[in-house]
Design a protein around this nucleic acid. Structure first.
Lengths: 333, 333
DNA sequence: TTGAAAGCGCTACCAG
DNA sequence: CTGGTAGCGCTTTCAA
C-alpha cells in the first residue's frame, strides 16, 4: 500500500471527479461546497496521501505561514528557553518556525537575508548581525522584532532588564561589605553584558570596581580568566557576566584554595540549574516569556492593517540570593 | 532611501534593461552571462533591495532547500544540543532548518505532517509522534531520519548507546557493594529510558532491583518521587533515568538527612553542567554529534540518485564517575 | 455550488 | 550570450 511520491491537486480532482478549484475549497473547509462533495474530495485526498505543496500555496497566498528567529547559539539554557517560548507562541498562531544560529558562520548576514525571504516575520537576537542588516531587512517591509538587543529605529524591541537589577546586585554586595569588586565580562560582547556592567557601576559607589574583559561566556573562559585575576587584583567579589563564567570562577577559586564566600564572593547571571547546585547568587530572567513576547508581537505586526509605532518592552528580572555572595539567614533553595 | 516593499525579478529586469531570464542567471552566477551584464543586474538588484521569493523558487525548482527536525521539547540541554548540532550540519549543506516541538500540542501528528510539506527531509526524535505517522510520511517518499528512537522499517536511525553503558553503570554500583538498587524512570516514557532500564537489569545481577516509574523527567518530578521511595524501599542506590531526576533525588536525600554516597548512591544520565557541580555520577552522550549525523544522513538521502538500504548507527556513550556513586581515588573534575 | 482561467515569482528549456 | 515562454501547484476572482 505504498503511497505514491507526490500527489497534486489535479490528481485529487480527477479521482474525485471535480475541478481543482473545488478541491481547493473542499480541503480548506470552505462553505461553498456541498457536504457530499467535500467528503468525496477528502476521501480522494486521503487515498492519495495528498498534502498541498507549501511553496505553491505560499506563492498563491503571498505568505509563508512561517516566521524565523536568529540567535547566536543554543549552548546553555538561555537561548534554548527563549527559542522554546518563541516556538510555542508561534505555533499557537499557526506559524512554523525557522531557526538560524549565526555563531561559527562567516556569512551570517547573507544567511539572515536568505532567511528573511522564507518568512512572514523575523526575530533577531543580540550578538548575531549588525544593525544595518536589520535595518535593511526591516526596510523591505518585513516585520522584525529585536530580542535582547539595542533598539533600532522603527523596530520593535523586547528585552530583559539588565541595568536596574545589576545595580541592585552590586549594592547587595557592597552591603555585604565588599569593597574591591571586579566585573568579569566584556561589555562590547553584547548589549546585555553592557547593560549589566553599566548597572554594576551605578551600584558600586563607594567601592573599587575593576573591569576585566573576559573573552568568552562559557565555563572554561571564566576559569581561565579567573586565575590571573584572583591572584593579581585580589578582589573580594567577582561579578560575572553570566553563570557559566561564574561557575568557572568558582572552580578556579577552589583550585587556589580560596573559600567562597569568606574569601571571595562570586555572582552570575541567568540562574542556570547548575547555579542552584553550586550555591551561586545570580539573576533570573524570564527566558520563555522573552521568546513568547517576540512571537506575539511579530504575529501582531504580520496581521495588522495599518502599521503602528514601534514598541519597546523590558521584562523584569530578579536577583536570586544564594550563598556565594556572603552569609545570609535564609537562602534561596 | 526606504526600499520598496517587495521587488520582483521583473522590476530588476526592467531596471537593468534585460529579460527576467537573464536576471535569474546573473543573480545565481551562471556562466552564461557577460561579466558586465551580471554587474548591471546585480547593481539593479541591490538598488531595489531585491531578494528572490523563496516559494516561487521552490515551486520552480521542486525543492525547499530546508529540512526539519521534530523534538518533544527544548527544556534541558539535551535536545538543545542535538538541535544545535543538527542546525550547524544542515547549514553546512545549504539547508535551512524548521523546528517543531510537539510537547503540549494536541495535534502533534497534524503539525508533523504539515511540516513534512515544507521540507526536503525530516528528522524525527523519540517521544513525539507514533510510528504510523512516521511510516506515512516516509511512504510519501520524503527522506526521514529517526533520532533517539526505535527503528521503523526502511527508515534510517541514529541513536546513542543506552543498554551497554547502563549495564556498565549498574555493574559499577554493584562493584561498590550496593545491593538494593532502584531504577527511577518510566521505560514506557521513551525508547532511551527503556534501553537504560534494560541495561541496568542486565548489570544488576546479584542485587535486588526495583523499578519505580517516576512520571516526569524534570527535577521536581525526581524530588517528589524520591521522598516516598527513599523512606519505603530504603535502597542503597538510585539509578535515575536522567540527570535532572537525579538532582531532584539529591535534593530529597538532603531533606531526609541522607548522606550521599555513604547512605545512598545516586546516578543520572546526560552529564549536565549541573551534574558536575553536584558531583553526580552520570553518563555522557554525544548530543551534537547525534544531531549532526541525522542532518548528514538526511542530506545524503535528499541528494542520492538511487535509494540505498536503510542505515542504523549507535553512537558511543560513556560513564562519568563522580562522587555520588561511592568513594573513589580519583574522580572526574 | 461548481468550473474555467488568471496569476503568484521564479527556473529552465528552446530559439535566435 | 540573451530573450521568450512554458510550466511548478495552488488560490481566487469571475462566470455559469
Amino acid at each position: 500500500m505504498k503511497a505514491l511520491s507526490k500527489a497534486t491537486i489535479y490528481q485529487v480532482a480527477q479521482l474525485a471527479g471535480v475541478s481543482i478549484a473545488t478541491v481547493s475549497r473542499a480541503l480548506r473547509d470552505s462553505e461553498l461546497v456541498t457536504a457530499e462533495t467535500r467528503e468525496r474530495v477528502q476521501a480522494a485526498a486521503r487515498q492519495l496521501n495528498f498534502t498541498p505543496s507549501r511553496p505553491a500555496r505560499s506563492l498563491a497566498e503571498g505568505r509563508h505561514a512561517a516566521n524565523g528567529i536568529v540567535f547566536p547559539d543554543l549552548v546553555g539554557p538561555y537561548y534554548a528557553e527563549v527559542v522554546l517560548g518563541y516556538e510555542a507562541a508561534a505555533a499557537a498562531s499557526g506559524s512554523s518556525v525557522l531557526i538560524l544560529a549565526t555563531n561559527g558562520r562567516r556569512d551570517a548576514a547573507a544567511a539572515v537575508r536568505d532567511l528573511a525571504g522564507r518568512v512572514d516575520g523575523l526575530t533577531v537576537m543580540g550578538r548575531t548581525v549588525d544593525d544595518e542588516v536589520v535595518a535593511g531587512i526591516a526596510g523591505t517591509g518585513l516585520p522584525v522584532v529585536l530580542l535582547a538587543r539595542d533598539p533600532v529605529d522603527g523596530v520593535d524591541t523586547v528585552r530583559a532588564g539588565n541595568t536596574g537589577t545589576a545595580r541592585a546586585l552590586a549594592e547587595h554586595l557592597v552591603g555585604h561589605g565588599h569593597r574591591r569588586l571586579t566585573f568579569l565580562g566584556d561589555p562590547d560582547d553584547s548589549p546585555d553584558v553592557a547593560g549589566r556592567y553599566a548597572g554594576v557601576r551605578a551600584g558600586a559607589k563607594g567601592a573599587r570596581l575593576t573591569l576585566v574583559r573576559g573573552k568568552g561566556l562559557d565555563l572554561e573562559s571564566g576559569r581561565r580568566a579567573a586565575a590571573p585575576l584572583l591572584t593579581a587584583d585580589k578582589p573580594d567579589a567577582v561579578i560575572c557576566a553570566n553563570d557559566e563564567v561564574a561557575l568557572g570562577v568558582l572552580l578556579a577559586a577552589a583550585d587556589l584554595g580560596l573559600r567562597v564566600p569568606e574569601d571571595l564572593a562570586v555572582t552570575g547571571w541567568d540562574d542556570l540549574l547548575a547555579a542552584r547546585f553550586a550555591g551561586l547568587t545570580t539573576v533570573r530572567q524570564p527566558m520563555r516569556e522573552l521568546g513568547a513576547t517576540a512571537a506575539h508581537w511579530l504575529h501582531k505586526r504580520i496581521t495588522e492593517e495599518n502599521r503602528t509605532a514601534a514598541r519597546r518592552r523590558v521584562l523584569a528580572t530578579e536577583v536570586v540570593i544564594r550563598g556565594s555572595c556572603g552569609a545570609h539567614e535564609e537562602v534561596h533553595p
